[in-house]
Amino acid sequence: MSSASPALHPLDPQPAGAPTDMAVHLRDVRRVFSGREVLGGIDLSIPPGEFVALLGHSGTGKTTILRILSGLDRADAGTVQVPTARSVVFQEPRLVPAKRVWQNVVIGHDQNRPARETAIAALREVGLGQHVDAWPKTLSGGEAQRVALARALAVEPDLLLLDEPFASLDALTRMRMHDLVAQLWERHHPAVVLVTHDVDEAIVLADRIIVLNAGRITLDVRVNLSKPRLRTDARFGTLRQRLLDELGVISQPARHD
């Protein structure tokens, strides 16, 4: 579905001769909020099917990049090109409480019989085939977040944006969600941008990790570890340490949990 070059959708006033074989193409993107520069010239290209994690402290512009990629926010300057077919999983599920689970999954489709089939297929993929007709309020936090994931997959995105989608889940549910996301990515292979605070999460899931500091990319590394990536692997620990150093976290021995 998505390793072919996706239809690009310019989100900026000044079109530029961008390479069209990229799923995401950002060139010198700037964003200013009330006089404060949040993004100070971001250059970022992501090929189709690549899984990228954006790491950084709060307020470094991670979420701003994600909102610009999603189209919910506009850059003040620069080139922004993203696929037309893109979807987001937010930190909260953001389901409509008055709509049944399946209707939430296909909220953007015409809500007819084929849409219901699409919804059921997507819900099965995230292991919620038995909750098709449930109301969102009856779901646990992890289940609701899986519905949000099914909703994001149902549009068959070329670019999947994950905005700290596991941050409010308990540790065990979060690990199961990591496995699920990894599986779904293997199967559908969209380009993914995952915004996270969690260094381990980034290493477990991503092909490439980008560290943001004060609105600029300060590190862009490839994760050359075979999957599944074990935290007990020495190279895992080395990469982890490097990322923590980059983030300015005082050195500590890697946790083996």
Partner: peptide, 10 residues
């Protein structure tokens, strides 16, 4: 936030 999600999904 619900409205934003709606916009994202077209």
């Amino acid at each position: 936030k619900l409205i934003e999600a709606g916009i994202i999904f077209g």
